[in-house]
Amino acid sequence: MLMTSRAVALAAAVGLVVAGTGVAGAAPDEDRIDRRVVQRVLDEMVRTGAQGVQVRIADGRREFTARAGTAEADSPEPVPVDGRFRIASITKTFVATVVLQLVDERRLELDAPVARYLPGLLAHGDGVTVRHLLQHTSGVPDYLAWLPDDAGTRPFTPGELVALIADEPLDFAPGTASGYSNTNYVLAGMLVERITGRPYGDAVTARILRPLGLRSTSLPGTRTQIPGPHARAYLRFDDQALDVTEYDPSFSWAAGEMISTTADLNRFLDALLDGRLVRPARLREMLTAVEGSGLGVSFYELSCGIPVWGHNGRILGYSSTVASSRDTGTRMTFAVSWAWDFGSVTGRQALMEEVFC
């Protein structure tokens, strides 16, 4: 049974094996990336609040994995390097890709108002375009702020999620500012269903998962369990650990319900940035950032100035990042299962700096 305070936590919410503190494989000086530094960062993540963490890094022709922590509390079993995890808002990149494919097919117009396709759903639907949704420039409020305390314990429909904010005023006039809102991608998922006449998950599966062979990626719907090997996750209340591995993720739907692995996410981002999923003109629009946000992707600013694209994910119990250089020569995906709230975990920026700089 999930605690009612979970809704608050939910609203706050992206080869060779190195295990524990040991390093295996080629000597660090043979690689541009120092694996000892990577391992130290992962160990620090565990020290500051992660139950376990896994990372997969591809650099040129080399690929390696590293991990720290354990798969379960009070157990010596290490985090599986091919483990599944809830990818949360990285789901948005899959959804945006499908929307842009429909734009390429001229079944949807990027600058058309949402009300053209979903009439009567939003009080301000005439002024919000499809592009505004994908780039978080719509001004539509984030429904997570109105999410009931029983989130995670029962199914939610996308209509119920949008209804939470349907009559609320916009946070700002569409196109005049940027404000992250999960409602944008619930609406994007509904657009996919309206245009295709099928569940949005069918479109993601047929257009992305199956062609790329992403066999470990799934859309759970109302299923509470994570299929396949995975690390368990916890959240602590008054120094008592609550297992938050299993819950109904339908409260996040097209904004964050998916489950995947580091290998699948690396492959997906490689295909996307390589131009194998959307046409070149659409990809250029996708990578045009407004305050760091493109159409379903984010731009990461690093100290070395190297442009890096990807997305973060954060949902109760799991946090993750997928990132790639524009030429896809260097890619990284890491996933954290919590022991405490992820807000206490440090090291994400240091890990990205080591990998890409």
Rank of each mutant, 00 (worst) to 15 (best):
E353K: 05
G347E: 05
T4D: 13
W340G: 01
E44C: 07
L273E: 02
R331F: 00
G317N: 03
L144G: 04
Y247R: 10
S89T: 03
R223M: 07
V336K: 04
L302H: 01
P174V: 15
V278S: 10
H124V: 09
P158K: 10
P76V: 11
R348L: 02
A206D: 15
D167S: 15
A66H: 05
Q349D: 15
G125H: 06
P174W: 13
A350S: 08
L133E: 08
S319W: 09
R232D: 04
L242V: 14
D31E: 11
V140E: 08
A335E: 00
T157A: 15
D149A: 15
E63R: 09
I306H: 09
Y180T: 05
L144K: 03
A88Q: 03
Y300G: 07
R198N: 09
R276F: 07
A163R: 09
T176N: 07
D126E: 15
T153L: 14
T261D: 02
L295F: 14
T48I: 06
R223H: 13
G69V: 05
R32S: 12
L134D: 02
A88F: 02
A66N: 04
Q54P: 04
M258E: 03
R326K: 11
E105T: 06
D341A: 15
Y180F: 13
Q225H: 13
E291M: 12
R194P: 00
E285P: 00
G179P: 02
H230C: 06
V37Q: 12
V308S: 01
P229T: 12
E257R: 03
V297L: 05
A73G: 00
V192Y: 08
V98Y: 06
S250K: 07
S260D: 04
E77D: 13
F334G: 02
R331N: 00
A335K: 00
A350P: 01
